[in-house]
């Protein structure tokens, strides 16, 4: 998808610092990508077709999504500021409070996101706020894994 098409979906990207970082793929989604998984589509769907971490409620509530990330060692935090030695995840929700998207922090400025089955992009946290993904409702962090 061209940058113009991406910006038409997410108008706040226009004029912000962002870049497209991968080709399109339907093999993983933003929830998986934020968790560091790039070969599964994570979603707690009621038909039980897609991956969801074992033992976590299959519910489209933000609490179920935070529990999914807590199972990977993340804990809820108040702020999205970059902290050395930690990685953070932001969960976006729509006007009804349903999770729509997740992004993972890369550095003091940029976050990485997979846009549905489109590309991965690197962007500022606020640039994806808007009618498509809603607003950021939860921030989680965990110590950066040792390489």
């Amino acid at each position: 998808m061209s940058k113009e098409q991406i910006e038409s979906l997410f108008p706040n990207l226009s004029g912000s610092v962002y870049s497209v970082a991968s080709p399109q793929t339907a093999e993983y989604n933003c929830i998986a990508w934020a968790a560091g998984d790039h070969d599964k589509w994570w979603w707690p769907d009621q038909q039980n077709q897609y991956f969801w971490p074992p033992g976590i409620p299959r519910s489209e509530a933000v609490e179920a999504f935070t529990k999914a990330y807590e199972s990977l060692g993340y804990t809820l935090r108040e702020d999205a500021e970059y902290e050395d030695g930690f990685e953070k995840i932001a969960i976006y929700v729509d006007f009804a409070g349903k999770p729509t998207h997740a992004a993972r922090q890369l550095n003091p400025v940029l976050w990485t996101s997979k846009l549905g089955k489109l590309e991965d992009i690197e962007h500022t946290l606020d640039a994806l706020v808007g009618p498509q993904y809603g607003d950021v409702a939860a921030i989680l962090r965990r110590p950066k894994p040792l390489l």
Binding site: W43, D45, P99, A102, L115, G116, L118
Partner: peptide, 12 residues
Amino acid sequence: DTAHLSSVTEIA
């Protein structure tokens, strides 16, 4: 309409 969505529920 759904290429940018992650929610399988919204997609379906």
